[in-house]
Design a protein around this nucleic acid. Sequence first.
DNA 1: TGATTACGGTACTTCTCGTACCTTAACTAG
DNA 2: CTAGTTAAGGTACGAGAAGTACCGTAATCA
Lengths: 214, 214
Amino acid sequence: MARAGQEGRRAAATRRRGAVLEDAILQAAAEVLTESGVAGLTMEEVARRAGTNKNALYRRWPNRLVLGVAAYRRLAAAETAPPDTGSLRGDALEMLRRANSTWSSPYGEILRGLIAAADGTEELLAELRRDPRAGGDACEAAWLTLLGRAVARGEAAPEALHPRVASAPTALLRNEYVTRGVPAVPDAVLTEIVDEVFLPLVRGRGPAGGASAG
Amino acid sequence: MARAGQEGRRAAATRRRGAVLEDAILQAAAEVLTESGVAGLTMEEVARRAGTNKNALYRRWPNRLVLGVAAYRRLAAAETAPPDTGSLRGDALEMLRRANSTWSSPYGEILRGLIAAADGTEELLAELRRDPRAGGDACEAAWLTLLGRAVARGEAAPEALHPRVASAPTALLRNEYVTRGVPAVPDAVLTEIVDEVFLPLVRGRGPAGGASAG
DNA sequence: TGATTACGGTACTTCTCGTACCTTAACTAG
DNA sequence: CTAGTTAAGGTACGAGAAGTACCGTAATCA
């Protein structure tokens, strides 16, 4: 029982330091986040899980919130290629479904908890915005990409190639979460955002007529 | 020095109870919210300010968050009549400016703090949504009103009279606050929301202004 | 090999939530 | 007017977590 490894107590066969220790701490923090959410992320628990103590944490991150954001960034390291279904409607719906899936997943809950806990701290929010799946900066780029393809196909007016337009659907989806606090947004809302707002906006309501809905 | 009234210690000349005491507590809570924000809203401080103690608070509200929401509702009891500038653009801009003004004011900061602290609790969010100035349900009704007038004037397509369309500008504005954490949104963003998203959406991009391509 | 860095262990202060218990004032019913 | 009930006020306490302070010691580096 000299090295009762696994979680918690670990007999210090060798004393970790630097990047190795930092990795272990972030790993532990990510686990705690996944299991207990942002509210359950306490410095003591993370330290225990990482087999170290609070000192090592506070030497690296000034407080639990910054640590939480750093740990989240490790969870959310996925890459995203914009969908290419052949139609703007299909692409847009796919983008929203991906976003909805992320936001309603445990990661989404963590993300929302962190955003809430950040309480408007610009630095932390900027850090979180770097997560492509969170509707951040990279997400906007993806929307512009598929908008560009739609313009090339003649499906959208060139004027629609605008950042504000590109971020609109995501903003509307996020709004559902922020203001309603629901665990997940039904698919009908996604199609409504696409058919009632996004498509009319990019292709014009006039001559072309509505989407599938009249 | 028998009754050292004002704030804090108040010699109990007469012991308040019921609605009178409740009012005093809410008043104190509202003051604390205004001065110290949501983070500074502690039960002890509120009790001290109200000249009572925590018991009286916990007998009425289960925790500090519910008390905070109740106190906020007292701060935000204003009525709102939709603007009527004669043009849809003017109305929309005025609506957004009002919202921006609210959100960037101390009240907006409190509101955002409460939304953050509510952390997705549907009940509390619903309660907060009852504040017309917060972009809540009443706000959506106002947008529909001015949209209706625009349709009557021929400024907007009848299809634009849709809740999802009506809530879009507010959602985009809120999005700026949520994702960027800025203290206030510049007016240029408001006009961009109106000119690049809202107006093209409700009046169609075709003949009126933007693209002739469909 | 000796100096420096930074981990690990532990204890501590501070804060705040939420609860418990008891005394006493205000109200209410008879 | 008195007795009984309800609800304030006072105070103390336990729990949980943040963040700080020291100190001995293992790892690394000059």
